[in-house]
């Protein structure tokens, strides 16, 4: 409940910011809705660019269209151990600088295919020797996990793509699989 209120307040406070895209976020205070994380609006922009790379909306609605960044942050803030959270936030804050150095561009400025290539390149690193991107890899991996979870349990997905039946009404133990059938993944 507190978070919902905080998010509403946030929307009121930051509503104006949308109109000023060049606004400097560097001095932004920690977002109240995600107190355990201690992240700023600028950090949230980075995360949003990451979920948009993970699910760019080519064949489906894109991540941001269904506010997936909010779900990822809720889960990271509420459902992760403190140690994991620290690594997640470090990785988030390191991402732009790292891609700037490594790929010549901050992540937030990359288009979806370029961002996806960077995402793959970072995660492909040898985990035993590559220590500098440890937090970034953890951040990207966790964000992908929550993004997929949130996407496949979103109202959009469970009504328009793979409808969830709240009241299925029955169970059959043995039905033939038809070649053309669309798999019902939710009963």
């Amino acid at each position: 409940m507190n978070r919902r209120r905080a998010l509403q307040q946030l929307a009121m406070v930051t509503g104006g910011l949308v109109l000023i895209p060049s606004c400097d976020f560097s001095k932004e205070e920690a977002l109240k809705a995600y107190q355990n994380l201690g992240i700023t609006e600028a950090d949230k922009q980075v995360l949003t660019s990451v979920v948009n790379v993970i699910l760019p909306g080519k064949n489906l609605k894109g991540a941001e269209e269904i506010s997936l960044q909010d779900f990822v942050l809720v889960m990271a803030n509420d459902c992760m151990e403190e140690k994991e959270q620290k690594s997640f936030v470090k990785g988030l804050k390191e991402l732009d600088n790292y891609t700037k150095k490594q790929f010549g561009k901050v992540f937030t400025d990359m288009d979806a295919p370029t961002g996806a290539d960077a995402f793959r390149a970072i995660l492909a690193a040898d985990t035993a020797t590559e220590k500098t991107t440890e937090n970034i890899r953890h951040f990207l991996g966790t964000t992908k996990k929550f993004a997929i979870q949130g996407y496949m349990t979103s109202e959009y997905f469970l009504t328009e793509i793979s409808p969830y039946e709240l009241v299925p009404g029955g169970f059959k133990g043995k039905v033939n699989i038809e070649e053309t059938e669309i798999i019902k993944t939710n009963g």
Binding site: V53, K58, L60, P113, A116, F119, I148, I161
Partner: peptide, 11 residues
């Protein structure tokens, strides 16, 4: 994967 391939995988 991520990106378009992930969307295909989900679908």
């Amino acid at each position: 994967d991520v990106g378009e391939n992930l969307e295909k995988g989900i679908l």
